[in-house]
Design a binder for these strands. Structure first.
Lengths: 103, 103
DNA sequence: AAAACATATTAGACTAAACTAATATTAGCA
DNA sequence: TGCTAATATTAGTTTAGTCTAATATGTTTT
């Protein structure tokens, strides 16, 4: 049976898949990689990533709502950075798995 | 500038996000977790996960097309298992990050 | 206070994914 | 060979996500 186990596992999968959904988009993943390096303003991210200001703002807003990012005003700039420590850890794992030279 | 770096990073993000898209769905993640333990028939997975046979077959077919799974006929059963080793590694990382007791 | 800059919001079009229900295929068994 | 069990496929509905274009908000500078 193991139904109780499966049920709690299902719950965990739901939680994890929430985070994964945010990361499972090429542009958002790129944004997160960029922010993992250091915090950045919206404009910097737009230049670096190459999408419209509007879409960038929507992506950032969404990830902020989900608790992955925080923003802080700095003069006329809005600076975003990664809030959820799990994001760093997932990014690191992904790098290990996908980007390591396996020589 | 760092535009060349960013470009190759963008490519990698695209590739990685392909895999993540498959995993970023609560039911598919649950299926993968279950298959990570051991290979299983469609019927077993239906019982365990609790979705319709049709939807299960569609999920499995999709993940097979994407190269994550393989299937092998065993009598009247069709047995699925994880093919892509990166799936195991991502699952393990996710467990480490989300499921470890941090005591 | 007006102008200019940086970011956010909104509405709408477009695309893709999830799900259901019905039916088709295929393999083993009577 | 016909029957049943197991899985796959298809079409259609619904829901959700992506993206663009236009506009609004808020901040600094003059």
């Amino acid at each position: 049976m193991a139904h109780l186990e499966t049920e709690s596992l299902a719950k965990q999968c739901e939680e994890v898949s929430e985070l994964l959904k945010s990361m499972a988009h090429p542009t958002r993943l790129l944004i997160l990689c960029s922010l993992a390096e250091k915090e950045k303003s919206v404009g910097e991210l737009v230049d670096e990533v190459g999408i419209s200001q509007s879409l960038m703002s929507q992506f950032l807003g969404r990830m902020k709502d989900e608790g992955l990012l925080v923003s802080e005003r700095n003069g006329r700039l809005m600076v975003y950075s990664i809030k959820d420590p799990r994001v760093f850890r997932v990014l690191k794992s992904l790098r290990d798995i996908f980007c390591r030279r396996t020589k």
